[in-house]
Design a protein around this nucleic acid. Structure first.
Lengths: 222, 222
DNA sequence: TATAAAACCGAGTAATGATTCGGCTTTCAG
DNA sequence: CTGAAAGCCGAATCATTACTCGGTTTTATA
């Protein structure tokens, strides 16, 4: 009953905080399966939400057994964590791109138009964003991801705002970036859930508001 | 669905026709305890969040046993549900007030200033709003509350927008109301979490954006 | 004071769902 | 062809927590 010497597991972190794959997928096939699991999880998030997401359900969706599932991920949270990392990566890429834009040559309107459109793409591409983001906020084990995401966006945008002409203290620019983050996040989730003309109009409203927010702080003097 | 085992208020009948008068005092106590439980739950929501909220924890916080807890509420969700209803009621009251404002005599700026300030008060008064709202969205049993809340706000604000001069189809006004709802909700949660000057500035930004949103749709013609 | 209803207690029960484990099957380098 | 590693299986186990229940204490009216 006590720990036998079945290799490798005994000296790891407590179960709940192990979040990386139990072993590095050594084959292409293995890696593909990990991705399959993440895709299936994203689908299920959309269909049933976070709280009804069980490991058995995921396994069934992939078409494997729970046992096999645990061959690729140490625990349930690790799957969501990996999914969150995917999302984080997409956001990181976008921010990296934005940083390379010729900000000096863009009008505020052009800038806002581009950022919001690009951001929407990221939201649209990620299946089950809403429950995922919700989970990242609600589940303690995923909290660091959420925190990291926010910090990353805020830092990057605060920098961008400076380049755009907001000559204020970093602190203040970060505060504005937080407002920007929450505004776009909330409204993009609405846009994603809407369709056609309605989605387009809400997107336009969002752009309008972002522009208003930035306009205000680019013209004001601290 | 919530508690029906407490009081039926407003049955202050003449002495002669009261069937069992000896019940009244204890019912008062009962009601008070129910409120105590809700208060304790709100506190715990703030402290530990939704997922670490257990019935035993609530009981301990109140200073009673789980058994007693179940004397007042049929199950755990019912407690959160009742808490959600409290919140809903506050919102309802605010919307009712707004409906009575002399909208015709207010400038857009004055209107926005008042609505947002009043709305902030409601958010501030409700301890643990964030996890509560989060729970209302995430837990299937509470979903109806969230739905009702949104529908209520959207319907009421769509009406207000009309009075303010947005001569558009209900559909479009409701779309704008949804944007208004998400904007204020997201940003007010930020404001509540901030302090002092920082909170004030974010609040001002919020008002600025709300004004921008409404301005746009009051001047545009559908 | 007697007494019945209201409150209360908290160990025990049950249900749910994550995780394990011993053995099976497939793959593939040598 | 063969052996061992990679990959797989799913019933059994473990952990957590909502909820119950038989019995005790408190309250307040007659």
């Amino acid at each position: 009953m006590a720990q036998d010497n079945t290799t490798s597991i005994g000296d790891e972190l407590p179960t709940t905080s192990r979040v990386s794959p139990r072993r590095r997928p050594s084959q292409k096939r293995s890696k593909a399966r990990s991705q399959q699991i993440l895709d299936a999880t994203a689908e299920l998030l959309d269909e049933v939400g976070v709280d009804d997401l069980t490991t058995n359900l995921i396994a069934k969706q992939v078409g494997i057994s729970v046992g096999s599932l645990y061959h690729y991920f140490p625990n349930k949270h690790a799957i969501l964590y990996a999914l969150g990392e995917r999302w984080l990566e997409q956001t990181r890429l976008l921010l990296e791109q934005i940083d390379q834009w010729p900000l000096a040559t863009l009008s505020l309107r052009e800038f806002v138009d581009k950022v919001v459109d690009q951001n929407l793409k990221v939201y649209k591409k990620q299946q089950g964003v809403l429950p995922l983001v919700q989970a990242m906020f609600a589940i303690p084990e995923l909290r660091p991801l959420d925190q990291y995401h926010d910090d990353m966006v805020i830092a990057a945008m605060a920098k961008v705002f400076k380049q755009l002409g907001a000559h204020k203290h970093v602190h203040e620019r970060e505060r504005i970036a937080r407002a920007y983050l929450e505004l776009t996040h909330a409204l993009l989730l609405v846009v994603v859930s809407q369709q056609g003309q309605r989605a387009k109009r809400t997107l336009d409203d969002l752009k309008w508001m972002v522009e208003a927010l930035l306009q205000r702080h680019l013209t004001d003097i601290d």
